[in-house]
């Protein structure tokens, strides 16, 4: 029954959004390129060690294209990234693409589970707080949120790890797991760690947006036509509060991605964050480059996804 504003306008909107993403991606690539060039330390020395002879270093630079003029390096770099040719790890000569392909699913898995838990707890908490404004439930949710904001995720992760994995032995201590159930078993604690902050943030946001929506005239209209409270809250209230919530959830997803760096390290599980950290400590420029680019692409992708969700949530964007 619901018309999504005609296939044509929809497709046009999507194309426009995609076109918007292109300069963003180019900008990201340029920034990564510049950052890698201004980092202190010589990648050749970093890769071959202090004992390398000048000839060996020269050979390495030639091989890596580090001797070419900067603009040529830039074009080669951008072209390589766009064709997903991230080069090979300076440490073990593995294809960076293969390293990313192995690690990426773990990070995505962690992000998705953390988001599901965070949103799944955050929204009901927010509804509870908004519908019991200034009562005990609201204060309890406020306390929880404060805690969620205040406790650093790596610290909470360590606490959970010590309690549930080390002492109680309910969850594995490290690794990513094999097969769906084992992987879910492995991802649970790290996801809960990230989800606590999510839930705190989304809970607050839900409360604020809902309270604002509750003051709107159409909520009074809904009551005046005989809708009971649950219907008023969920169908009319929450449905409208979803607009600001979408933005918040999108931003929070981005935060989860960056949060996963520390969490993957604490729980010693594979993932892009872990890959990046070890690459940085080993000055594995090729891997750092690939990892940062993939991370950035994710940010662009999530922004694009948010735009799509907006279309679904807000008819006013849909029909224009």
């Amino acid at each position: 029954m619901r018309d999504l504003g005609g296939g044509k306008t929809m497709a046009r909107y999507l194309l426009l959004r995609l076109a918007d993403a292109v300069p963003t991606i180019l900008l990201v690539l340029t920034l990564v390129f510049i950052a890698m060039r201004i980092l202190p330390g010589d990648p050749a020395i970093a890769a071959l060690g202090d004992m390398a002879t000048p000839e060996q270093l020269e050979l390495f630079r030639e091989k890596m294209g580090l001797n070419a003029p900067l603009w040529l390096q830039y074009i080669n770099f951008v072209w390589g990234m766009l064709t997903l040719d991230f080069g090979r790890s300076l440490m073990n000569n593995q294809s960076v693409l293969a390293l990313i392909a192995y690690n990426l699913p773990y990070t995505i898995e962690l992000t998705i589970v953390a988001m599901i838990l965070g949103v799944g707890f955050g929204i009901p908490l927010g509804v509870l707080a908004a519908t019991h404004r200034n009562k005990a439930a609201d204060n309890a949710v406020r306390g929880f949120s404060l805690l969620g904001y205040a406790v650093p995720d790596f610290y909470l992760g360590a606490l959970l790890l010590i309690t549930f994995s080390l002492n109680l032995g309910w969850f594995p201590i490290n690794g990513g797991g094999e097969g769906f159930f084992d992987r879910m078993h492995h991802v649970f604690l790290p996801a809960v760690t990230l989800a606590l902050v999510k839930a705190a943030f989304i809970g607050r946001l839900t409360r604020t947006s809902l309270l604002e929506v509750f003051g709107k005239d159409y909520i009074r209209t809904a009551r005046a036509k005989g809708a009971r409270e649950p219907r008023v809250i969920y169908r009319h209230g929450l449905r409208n509060a979803l607009l600001p919530l979408t933005t918040g959830i999108g931003l929070s997803t981005l935060a989860t991605l960056s949060g996963s760096v520390a969490i993957e390290l604490v729980f010693n599980r594979p993932g892009i964050g872990k890959l990046l950290i070890s690459a940085i400590s080993e000055r594995d420029y090729a891997v750092i480059q690939g990892g940062v680019v993939i991370f950035s692409l994710f940010v662009v992708l999530i922004n694009l996804l948010m735009d799509l969700v907006y279309i679904v949530v807000d008819p006013r964007i849909r029909v224009q």
């Binding site: 809904a222 409208n240 006013r316």
Partner: peptide, 27 residues
Amino acid sequence: MPDIRGRDIAMIFQEPMSSLNPVMTIG
């Protein structure tokens, strides 16, 4: 009260611009 509202006594408001839910079709 919800049984009475809308069925026995209905109400319309001053602000037609904001009294309808923006994310639901009028149907």
